[in-house]
């Protein structure tokens, strides 16, 4: 076992360590800010015309509707939170139901890749939690022994799952997307870069696990160093692992990956949004606001500068 403080540090090494800490902080803050901004943007979207789909991802066996009117006070149609909606949404979240029933091979790699991704996130959370525990214990002689803590088994398990799944899933997806014309044609270089980052991260993680640091203690110590604002040196390989991992986080907001959240708005606020425009309802209020907005469309049949309300009543 090694003592964390006994590493001799060159200037370059120290710079590297500081850089990795800064990068890690930046990546976490960046993804938090980027995603929060997107959530705020979506939550603040103006009301839209009703454009619902009766069923979206699901097929109800016995769908019945009595004709649908804004004034039909049936809880059936007014609630977008009905169980069947929530369930069909969860089916997509939990086992990618549509992919599974459409293309099993693609589903398989996609699902494995996502398991890899999610376990990598949990793995990081466990490492951070452990590091935080160690840091808060105010122990002056931080040892690797202590740092590994009691979560070590879970940590290793998560590491193995995430690295293995990440490698298999992402290689599979990459090969699949390259070998199928209709996918290849529509896949931007960024997506392939993402696969490569993931694969490299996981490969290095594996090598670390097998050779250098079987308990992944170095990673926990890295976070301890971050918390105490005093870098604890990491090996070159671990440094690379951290670098790639953070690069992947920074990469995410530039991809459609945030559909995890935006699809929630798409289903519950658009495709299942059947809230009627009833007197005194929030919907009526929102409509009142948007109908007062000015139009600047410039086709001849539209009078630019009118409000929506005026345009709707305009007779040409």
């Amino acid at each position: 076992m090694f003592e964390a403080n006994t590493f001799s540090k060159s200037d370059l090494g120290l710079t590297m360590d500081i850089f990795l800490i800064l990068l890690t902080c930046f990546a976490y803050i960046f993804i938090l800010v980027a995603y929060s901004a997107k959530i705020v943007k979506y939550a603040r979207m103006p009301i839209h015309l009703r454009w619902e789909l009766f069923t979206a991802t699901k097929t109800e066996k016995k769908p019945y509707h009595h004709g649908l009117t804004a004034f039909e006070a049936q809880p059936f149609q007014s609630s977008r939170w009905r169980l069947s909606n929530v369930w069909s949404f969860l089916k997509e979240y939990l086992w990618f139901h549509s992919y599974l029933s459409h293309d099993k091979t693609y589903w398989c790699f996609l699902y494995i890749a996502h398991i890899g991704f999610v376990s990598l996130i949990i793995f990081q959370a466990v490492c951070i939690a452990t590091a935080l525990g160690t840091f808060l214990a105010h122990d002056q002689t931080i040892t690797a022994e202590r740092a590994t803590g009691s979560l070590v088994a879970l940590r290793i398990l998560l590491a193995i799952i995430s690295f293995a799944a990440g490698i298999i899933g992402n290689i599979g997806l990459m090969v699949y997307r390259i070998s199928h014309r209709d996918l290849r044609l529509y896949t931007p270089p960024l997506t392939f870069i993402g696969y490569c980052i993931s694969i490299c991260t996981c490969l290095i993680g594996f090598i670390l696990l097998l050779t250098n640091d079987p308990h992944f203690s170095g990673y926990v110590l890295f976070f301890v160093g971050m918390f105490q604002i005093k870098p604890i040196a990491v090996s070159g390989l671990l440094g690379l692992f951290i670098f790639l991992n953070m690069l992947h986080l920074i990469y995410l907001p530039f991809t459609p990956g945030f559909h995890y959240v935006t699809r929630f708005f798409a289903f519950f606020n658009v495709l299942w949004d059947t809230r009627p425009n009833q007197k005194g309802s929030p919907v009526e209020k929102a409509i009142g606001q948007v109908m007062g907005k000015k139009i600047t469309w410039s086709a001849p049949h539209i009078k630019s500068g009118q409000t929506w309300e005026q345009a709707a009543k305009h007779r040409s």
Binding site: Y42, M45, P46, I47, H48, L49, W51, P256, F258, H259, T262, R263, F265, A266, N269, V270, V290, K293, K294, I295, T296, W297
Partner: peptide, 17 residues
């Protein structure tokens, strides 16, 4: 928002995600 509140939300989502 002024010109296309009517479909801004689903348009954005469909184009970006």
């Amino acid at each position: 928002k002024e010109n296309n509140w009517t479909f801004l939300h689903p348009l954005y989502h469909s184009l970006e995600y």
